[in-house]
Design a protein around this nucleic acid. Structure first.
Lengths: 369, 369
DNA sequence: TTTAAAATTGTTTGCGCGCACATTTCAATT
DNA sequence: AATTGAAATGTGCGCGCAAACAATTTTAAA
């Protein structure tokens, strides 16, 4: 019915050379005469040779080290979920030739990033997975060893100046448009919508800016239905200041909806609205943090857009591992579908995040589904 | 830093026996003395031995056949997508010891199901993946070889009387609730919502009934906001009859929203609404068929719920392949997250269905992410 | 020419496992 | 005590490949 898979041995026989020479050609190791090369290439093309990845991995006992560099997960639920993803992939690959070594840094301390990055490099990793939340520091760091050709993959955050092997995350612009659409769908016009960036401090906000563009464009493109938009940044706020600022914001009776661009900001705002009994204001935010889940159930939050930090991180490791071991290419970027969470589908997302759908196998197929 | 992975040889050494005996214990082949068993088990547990799946697969040259049995894809866009998933998984596994053999039957001909099923069995497959759309016929068929212990996985459809190795699909009840919620979110009350089952004929509608329960329960649970519900079945309709029935339905001015439970019914209804300029009626339906995509873009359809037929099918193959080769267990059911598609996130779903997120490797990790 | 160095080619080993097969143990039967 | 055979245990090969290693041929310098 189907021909047996062609092996290196078969190639060698057909080309009239030994397996060693074939191996040299396959791996571009040089020291092959032009004639031999030509013959082997011909056979290789004719037979459509595909190496047996199982055997390849088994045979080579080279160990690969993948360093991961993300914010300390114990301090932040979002990064905790990323870390789950890393650990999951780590576990998957642990039996083979891949050693995933996690490094963490303090989300509020640029120095700690540099320190952890240095420690990671001391391990001489073969690849790096990182979420470069500190723009300038990450820029310095990753540029410094670009010539070392240590491949790296970014997730969650981009650095515009640098092109990693792959970026894994969302289409932030479209994400902003989606937030706008969701608010519009559930609100009565005319009214004012506010896009609100609530973040700790210091971290680069390229992706927040993109969300904002999307949000704004959405409304400016449509025929005027009497929707006003405002943009605000609450940065470096303590809770008291945040509450004060939010109070003054929602005192505007035209405001019917808020779009919060950060996951932590989402539940902070939800708590505020709940406390002041302003559930009339619609709220769209990000991610399945426990606080967000609670407020979604309560109805304080109307929609969540899931960034799926766990899956992002796990996929990052898988891409790199496949790249190292099987020389599989990665896409330049892998932008996840924008998943909308409501009260009624929440449960189905929680269930599957435990036993999720990256089910195929990290080692052999990198390719879609 | 980390101990080298423990091998069978190490187990044997630590337990003071030979690798052969360890092998017998690992595979429950019997013929092992109680003392040896005890010692080996102890070492096995202590070391947390995990077999090297690469080596295991490489060494054994047993070929497995997985038969897939679904409706003819050329006649139906939904099943075409399922078939993509099968082919993708088939390709992934083709280099190894798994041969996926697709069989098709006519969605409108029960006899053809029985015929194809028979043909599939003649191949003596080691496992079967199917979507049992014909209730009684599938029941007969799968019961007949239950004692042969050929494992089978269902996707898309369930048969209540039979428990397959795994069911892959949606939580239909919750799916109905989600449809209800989405309609409610975008409509102004008081009004009437209609849940509409439009299907060809004959196929078992257990999952449609569950969607209906969810839909109805959602509204009956909430405090009365003046929402009426109706349920209708348009079955075995030609286009003319369908149009007539729809016309009479939407002549009721209270009707502000429709929930269509089938993918094909969704674009048929959308076309109707478009043609008669009744885009004021909200429409929630199923799946990314091209007609549905068009009408979602146009705004005739407000929300689509994606059943992800491609991913369901691919995952089904992966589960079975992993089960056969690696003896990996499967969950009893794998219910996908209920994905909501709108105009603004549509693009992100289309992009990733081409190059989707079942990225890990089908062969080695079956385990989540 | 002779000879060493370089370039090219061929051979072998081992990765960890499954499985076929060989070997040993030991109790039951003669 | 000798024989048998089943139960228990041990050994060795091969899966396809990478890489170390060995052998051969070619080239260039003496």
């Amino acid at each position: 019915m189907e021909s047996k898979n062609v092996r290196i041995k078969d190639i060698a026989r057909l080309a009239g050379v030994s397996v060693g020479t074939v191996d040299r050609v396959i791996h571009n190791r040089g020291n092959v005469s032009p004639e031999a090369l030509k013959k082997i290439m011909a056979v290789l093309n004719k037979t459509g040779y595909k190496p047996n990845l199982l055997a390849r991995t088994l045979g080579s006992n080279k160990k690969f080290i993948i360093a991961t560099l993300i914010p300390e997960p114990s301090l932040d639920e979002y990064w905790e979920q990323s870390n789950w993803g890393i650990n999951e992939a780590r576990e998957e690959w642990s039996h083979y030739n891949v050693d995933v070594r996690p490094y963490f840094f303090d989300l509020y301390d640029k120095n700690s990033f540099e320190k952890s990055a240095k420690m990671a490099m001391d391990d001489q990793p073969d690849a790096i997975l990182s979420s470069p939340v500190f723009h300038q520091e990450a820029l310095n760091f990753f540029q410094s060893f670009q010539n070392d050709s240590v491949p790296y993959v970014f997730f969650n955050n981009k650095i515009p100046e640098i092109t990693p092997l792959c970026f894994i995350g969302q289409d932030f612009y479209q994400s902003g448009r989606l937030g706008a659409e969701l608010l519009e769908l559930i609100s009565e016009t005319p009214c004012t919508f506010v896009i609100l960036h609530i973040y700790e401090d210091l971290h680069n906000s390229v992706h927040l800016a993109q969300k904002e563009s999307g949000f704004m464009d959405y409304f400016s493109e449509m025929e005027n239905k009497g929707i006003q938009t405002r943009s605000l940044e609450f940065c470096n706020h303590d809770e008291v200041t945040l509450e004060k600022d939010l109070l003054s914001l929602v005192s505007d009776p035209d405001i019917k909806g808020l779009f919060i661009t950060t996951s932590k900001g989402t539940y902070l705002t939800a708590s505020f609205l709940k406390k002041h009994n302003r559930q009339d204001i619609k709220l769209v935010g990000y991610d399945l943090l426990s606080g967000n889940i609670d407020h979604l159930k309560l109805g304080t939050i109307d929609f969540l857009i899931d960034q799926n930090p766990k899956k992002q991180a796990a996929l990052g490791v898988n891409y790199l591992a496949n790249y190292l071991i099987f020389k599989k290419g990665t896409p330049n970027e892998d932008l996840f579908p924008l998943e909308i969470i409501t009260r009624q589908n929440l449960k189905t997302f929680l269930g599957s995040s435990i036993q999720s759908h990256l089910k195929s196998s990290a080692v052999l197929n990198n390719q879609s589904a």
